[in-house]
């Protein structure tokens, strides 16, 4: 790739890129998700996963969990830019607050007969996945775990007849007695 000398610092290119999980507390008003997604695309930031639902119905407050990657200065910019949005109340960097609990849920459909079917059942039970639906030729499994566990499960299931995957993205919470309001 052509390396252009620009006004902008080359330094960020050689800084290590880290993965951060952010909890963003927002007013659940129309367009708020578009604002946040648009901020990421407009400024060239990455979204690895994004999970959102209203968490306090009476106050119309939603919690958005975003997994993003970037150098430390980019992560700092992302947080400052998010906090600048009018409907954003708070941004909490769960990666900085210590090892947060991070979980995601996936649904996996496998189709197969004979040994494939038996192997799929064995793997599912080894991972502790629940069987949500079964026919003579298929299963739908549900697995909740870390992103890495889910990735591993999907990779193995691919070998035994995986035909469809649906994932929620990460939900995360800091450990310890302190709560985020």
């Amino acid at each position: 790739m052509l390396q252009m000398k620009t006004h902008y610092p080359d330094a960020t290119r050689v800084e290590p890129v880290n993965r951060h999980t952010l909890a963003v507390i927002v007013d659940n008003e129309p367009g708020v998700l578009a604002r946040i997604a648009g901020l990421f695309s407009g400024r060239g930031y990455n979204i690895e996963s994004l999970t959102v639902t209203e968490t306090e119905h009476e106050a119309h407050i939603s919690r958005i969990t975003i997994v993003t990657t970037g150098t430390n200065s980019i992560i700092q910019q992302i947080k400052s830019q998010l906090e600048r949005l009018v409907p954003v109340h708070r941004v909490i960097d769960l990666t900085l607050t210590g090892e947060a609990v991070e979980r995601e849920l996936c649904l996996v459909k496998v189709v197969g007969k004979g040994d494939y079917r038996v192997e799929a059942m064995r793997l599912a039970s080894a991972f502790g996945a629940r069987t949500m639906d079964a026919t003579l030729t298929s299963f739908v499994y549900e697995l909740t775990g870390t992103t890495e566990e889910v990735e591993r499960f999907i990779k193995l299931m691919t070998a035994v007849g995986l035909v469809e995957v649906s994932r929620t993205g990460v939900a995360a919470m800091a450990r310890g007695a302190e709560g985020i309001v």
Binding site: Q76, Q77, S80, Q81, R84
Partner: peptide, 11 residues
């Protein structure tokens, strides 16, 4: 007044 202006391009 805008925290996002700080350390955006110049440390």
């Amino acid at each position: 007044i805008d925290p996002s202006s700080i350390n955006k391009t110049v440390k």
